[in-house]
């Protein structure tokens, strides 16, 4: 460089912020192009809308998981929580439309309660969240089996199922907009606003350095417990959509916790907390779903899903770890 050097300090350079959403947007764009090459129909508004609707539950779970992970913890219980919610809903509604709304409220309360317990056990009893939520996972699985004598009972009302399967028809430009997508957009906007609020900024600070947060007057235990509650609530909403879409079974939520964690990591959120955006986590989930769709179009066996997830987790963590140490 023989040019005259600028003398002004500091120099502003456009940059990729660690924890930002640019990388995941780039990956998403590449996948969209690949999908477009293989299956141009997929990019038509109507099929794109229904894809987004189908992806809503995992995106919601990723948002819920984001709150927990960014605060420095894990929530492994969400998959079995979704299963439990679906099974509970079916049994309590028992195909009676009049019970739909009370049960929806109950599910939200139950999700919040499970999150509260996860949070309190982790923060007050000082059980590592990995263990706490693994325990909760097992408890929920066993309890649901026990409660339903080994097979789901009852059935969901059509009223309940419409959240997951119906859509606003004939919307200009977009065509069919699933209810699930509307729910997703509302939750996403709320999540973004929450992360810009005092609570959101404090939550990330807690994940970054809980000692500093505590000594600055933050009630770290309360903040993290709220994160677990948010994750439980997200699981409840996801369960409502998922129950409607794919019906009642003990497999309803199987493996979703790992899907959510993979999505969060893929979205540039640091495991261990303190960095990353909720939008990134949700885009991570969308990317993951798009990747699975792509694998499907290319005839890759669905059995490879978990292998791919595992590979993504390892790769994403390795990339972020080497990037942060090479500063």
């Amino acid at each position: 460089m023989q040019t005259v050097q600028p003398r002004s300090l500091p120099l502003r350079v456009p940059r990729v912020r660690p924890g930002g959403v640019l990388p995941i947007l780039a990956i998403l764009a590449v996948l969209l192009v690949l999908v477009g090459i293989r299956q141009p129909d997929f990019l038509a508004p109507s099929s794109l809308m229904s894809f987004l609707g189908r992806s809503a539950p995992i995106i919601l779970l990723a948002a819920g998981q984001y709150f927990v992970i960014v605060s420095g913890e894990f929530d492994l219980s969400v998959g079995s929580l979704v299963t439990a919610q679906v099974v509970i809903a079916a049994r309590l509604i028992d195909s009676d439309p009049a019970r739909t709304w009370p049960v929806v409220l109950l599910l939200l309360a139950f999700g919040a309660l499970v999150g509260l317990v996860n949070g309190l056990v982790t923060t007050r009893l000082r059980v590592p969240s990995f263990i706490t939520t693994l325990g909760m996972f097992l408890i929920l699985v066993g309890a649901v089996y026990l409660w339903s004598d080994g097979a789901p009972k009852g059935g969901l009302s059509e009223e309940f199922r419409r959240f997951g399967r119906r859509a606003f028809e004939d919307v200009p430009l977009l065509g069919r907009v699933p209810y699930a997508l509307v729910v997703l957009v509302v939750v996403a906007v709320a999540a973004v606003l929450l992360m810009r609020s005092d609570f959101g900024r404090t939550l990330v600070a807690v994940g970054d350095n809980p000692r500093t947060a505590e000594l600055s007057g933050v009630r770290v235990w309360r903040t993290r417990t709220v994160a677990f509650i948010l994750s439980g609530l997200a699981a409840a909403v996801a369960a409502i959509l998922l129950g409607g879409y794919s019906g009642v079974s003990f497999q309803a939520g199987a493996g979703l916790e790992f899907g959510a964690i993979t999505a969060v990591v893929l979205g540039g959120v640091a495991l261990g907390g303190g960095r990353g955006a909720v939008v990134g986590a949700m885009l991570g989930a969308l990317t993951l779903e798009l990747l699975f769709a792509l694998m499907n179009f290319y005839g890759v066996s669905g059995a490879l899903r978990s292998t791919v997830q595992g590979g993504i987790i390892l790769l994403a963590v390795a990339v972020s770890a080497t990037r942060s140490s090479s500063r």
Partner: peptide, 18 residues
Amino acid sequence: IVPRQSVLDNALLASRAV
């Protein structure tokens, strides 16, 4: 400090919390 947060977020930490 909360090392990976911005200068502004660090400076606001206590006011936001309490």
